[in-house]
């Protein structure tokens, strides 16, 4: 256990504003551990987050960070990765962040397949805005949006990701710390768009999906051939219990490795100098007619 390298020491990084008992604390510790164990350094790691309780993560870690906009962590993280593929980019957000406000980016992020890791703190509720229905709130749950109970079926992000042939798909429950750490480590190491849905109890607003509930309703995946998309999809559709573990892995064309801008030039964008001679020559060749 390291948790030294990524432990922040900045004045406003110490007073963590999550509710006592919130699942986010454990996710933070697991993430710091995973990064250290993988040998990453704060300066070559970047945590890009959206807005929500999960979105506060960059402030509680010693690494580059960008706390951006609700729903937009994936595009921001994508741009960052394209500007500098040497950075280890971890994109963090809540279920509202990723599956509602930013759903289009989730789908297209999977399609684009940049080598980033996406961690979704799925507490099945809107935490920061105080308990509204989220895209993953279960039918029957009473929320401030649906005081009589949610009656519309939730989104199944894991099945969705698999259906899109996402490069790496996993689900974990933060109550299983060691397993979660192993999976996050594998997600980070996987080359391509790696997606981990993390069941994270919100002790304040979600009275249904508690630590005990998750313990009872999840089952660790055993002996699965993670290259078999059909089996993975089948497993993902199961909601009683919810399977946790790695569902699916596939190596696909990685976006930034195949774009023109990185064919003859390998440096991150900020290191590229403008070649004025090349531009002058281009003008001579194309506009004198």
């Amino acid at each position: 256990m390291g948790i030294k390298l990524f432990q922040p020491d900045r004045p406003h990084s110490k007073e963590i504003s999550w509710c006592p008992g919130c699942g986010n604390f454990a996710i933070r510790l697991v993430l710091m551990d995973a990064l250290e164990e993988l040998g990453f350094k704060p300066e070559n790691t970047a945590i890009v987050s959206g807005i929500g309780q999960a979105g506060k993560m960059p402030h509680y870690i010693n690494a580059n960070g960008f706390h951006s906009l609700h729903g937009r962590a994936i595009p921001v993280g994508t741009g960052l990765k394209l500007a500098n593929p040497n950075l280890n980019v971890i994109i963090v957000g809540g279920d509202g962040d990723m599956y509602s406000e930013g759903m289009e980016h989730f789908v297209h992020g999977i399609k684009r397949n940049t080598n980033v890791t996406v961690l979704v703190h799925n507490n099945q509720v809107y935490g920061l805005t105080k308990g509204q229905t989220s895209p993953t709130t279960l039918v029957g749950t009473k929320t401030s949006t649906h005081p009589g109970g949610v009656f519309i079926e939730p989104i199944n992000p894991v099945a969705l990701a698999i259906s899109l042939n996402c490069s790496f798909v996993a689900r974990t429950f933060i109550g299983h710390k060691e397993e979660t750490k192993t999976i996050i480590k594998e997600a980070i190491q996987h080359e391509g768009f790696s997606f981990v849905d993390i069941f994270q109890p919100c002790v304040t607003f979600n009275r249904i999906n508690t630590y005990d509930w998750y313990k009872e309703h999840t089952k660790i995946i055993n002996n699965l051939d993670t290259s078999d998309i059909k089996k993975a999809f089948d497993l993902a559709l199961n909601t009683n219990p919810y399977y946790v573990g790695i569902f699916y892995k596939t190596l696909k064309t990685v976006f930034e490795k195949n774009i023109e801008g990185y064919k003859d030039f390998k440096d991150p964008l900020y290191k590229r100098a403008v070649d004025t001679n090349l531009i002058n020559q281009f003008i001579e060749d194309n506009y004198r007619l």
């Binding site: 994508t78 960052l80 394209l82 500007a83 964008l269 900020y270 290191k271």
Partner: peptide, 15 residues
Amino acid sequence: ISVINSAIGASFGGA
């Protein structure tokens, strides 16, 4: 939306 957010992410990275 993603166009400009990605551009901002890239600028954060020095582009």
